[in-house]
Design a protein around this nucleic acid. Sequence first.
DNA 1: TCGCTGGTTGACTGACCAGTCAATCTATGC
DNA 2: GCATAGATTGACTGGTCAGTCAACCAGCGA
Lengths: 208, 208
Amino acid sequence: MSATRAKSVPDRRRAILDAAVKVFARQGFHACRVSDIADEAGVAYGLLYHYFPSKDDVLSTLFLERWGVMLEMIRAVDREPLPAREKLTAIASFIVDSYRHDPDLMKVIIVEVTRAANSFGQTHLAQIRQAYTLIAAIVTKAQQEGVFKAEIDAEFAAMTFYGAIEQVLTGWIFGLLPQGDDHFERAKQMVVETVCGGLECAVTPSKT
Amino acid sequence: MSATRAKSVPDRRRAILDAAVKVFARQGFHACRVSDIADEAGVAYGLLYHYFPSKDDVLSTLFLERWGVMLEMIRAVDREPLPAREKLTAIASFIVDSYRHDPDLMKVIIVEVTRAANSFGQTHLAQIRQAYTLIAAIVTKAQQEGVFKAEIDAEFAAMTFYGAIEQVLTGWIFGLLPQGDDHFERAKQMVVETVCGGLECAVTPSKT
DNA sequence: TCGCTGGTTGACTGACCAGTCAATCTATGC
DNA sequence: GCATAGATTGACTGGTCAGTCAACCAGCGA
């Protein structure tokens, strides 16, 4: 009865983080007030400063928490003896599933951190870069094995691959692409098929 | 002697816009003050409000000006009787050259508008969407001609293609990818080759 | 020379909001 | 029952900054 009592020991810190995700996603980091987060969490204004040194730090925490999980996941996949295409599929799946599981959180990470070259992007550049580097390593290995073309820089390919995924998420975030479980599954396949196999038909169709 | 006299009739409005590009690129839209723009332009604070109704409107003007040129360019390319791959190359070239010509402006457009799903991105969603739609139309046509695979949604392919380019620009903006005329030229080729031809080698190499 | 128009100036205002802090509450140990 | 530590509260402060506005000025026509 002492462990994890439902109401008696509420995790305020977690409540604040969850509320911040909602508020940041709805209003944007710059446009929202700290009091909006506190209200959403059902908590007094000052309590946020008991758990976090600043508003910025709340966003940083959200980002680092999630990004760390992703980096670990990429490293784990890379350790497996899988073909490059399947490694990339696993990464795409993870990111898409992250969005499916918590679209608000992914929206915040992409819009407020990953794609914000000024302010936050700058601060977390090292973390962001690691993802690109890990993907590039997968491409390099595939090139050495002769599975991927050598004439496309691995770093460049990594940017292309990641950029394609992030743009698809952005499409969902903006409401420009249709969402739903089946669309999410198709997206995983299509992004990998596009980047690995290309849009062009393998052989010129002799459809005569 | 009356037309375009160098110093006597300075275009303050243009000076303000150019200064805004520099300041937005350096400090970010939210982080900078209107006085920073005025200072950079060598103009009094109040003059900005003589030419623009608000700080927001300055950014909107910069975006709409440039984005309009790009949309017109895509439409023009699409009118030409070119193969899809060359159309995409032309679009990639235009965007890369835009960055080469004025990296600060492209940084501002991408970071503050295109990738800002909240705030500005929302306002100009219709404009942004048009670019995707035009690219998707090119893909659809290529699919009907049997040049591009039919199993990848055209809208999806458009997002992938545009996302790849934007991510490369972001790489330059963040200082994650090497810059320079030769890198820019290679980038044009590589992004199209990746998306159209794919990363994988056409035939499994029998390199035994 | 005078006055008008429109460009130009920058001090000022009003609103907003991140972060502080002293007071209050709650739980736990003795 | 009491004391202590940590959690919780929310009114308040200090600083910032977008946007205003009354005054000033330059050019030009009469």
